[in-house]
Amino acid sequence: MDIIQLSWFQLSIAFISLLIPAAILGYYKTGLNSKMLIATVRMTLQLIFVGYYLEYLFELDNAWVNLAWIMVMVIVADFATIDRSELSRKKELLIPVFAATFFGIVLINFFFLELVIQLPELLEAQYAIPITGMVLGNCLRSNVIGINDFYYSLKENRERFQFFLSCGASRSEALYPFFQTALKKSANPTLASMATIGLVSLPGMMTGQILSGSSPMTAIQYQIMIMLAIFSGTILSVYLAIKLCNRTVFFENDMLDESILKG
């Protein structure tokens, strides 16, 4: 059972569905229609670009080129994490977040690609690129939630942190409750989606596999694996990102360098 190939004409018909949200958002004067237009154009162009690029990447299928592409994805994710966490693009943050994300991805990739899937060739593009992309996209979302919560909560509750220090806590002991909350907040969305997956929604990757002809059982096996990769990867990268950033964003007197915060 092969997938029905979409022509560009058929795809363009799909855009007609946007008339519905455009009408609703326009009626309530949400001002979101121009945003929707920009987002749609960006999405389409970015994906067309990636499509061409991946076709080329798959044809080449060279571990070094694939690694270089993963590096590019991590660098983009690094800047996006800092920006969306409302933090300043300072090297004190960019370097640790990059290191945390990269290390997290390498570890997760090695584990799942080499030990679970057991790829015949290192970093085979067909597997390495989509799986890295999915894990990285989720790491980005969790990192943003975790890092933003950690540093802004520390600012908002400065006196609580200082109270702990004044009672003899080491810096990491005083940061413990803030770490706890940040981890909870960043883990919750993935845990919630793990708990409802298959019942409320069919995940994108699984849908894609089924559409392209895989059996549903193969699709769910990959989906289970990817959910595990995503959860392990996100928690690892949030933990590492905050741990590594904390080495550079505190003064000697244990006070947070609040110039890293934008808000």
Binding site: E159, R160, Q162, F163, G168
Partner: peptide, 13 residues
């Protein structure tokens, strides 16, 4: 700090 304790005015402890 190891020999002190401080009670802040806002009591956010």
């Amino acid at each position: 700090r190891k020999n002190s304790s401080w009670l802040p005015q806002d009591l956010n402890i």
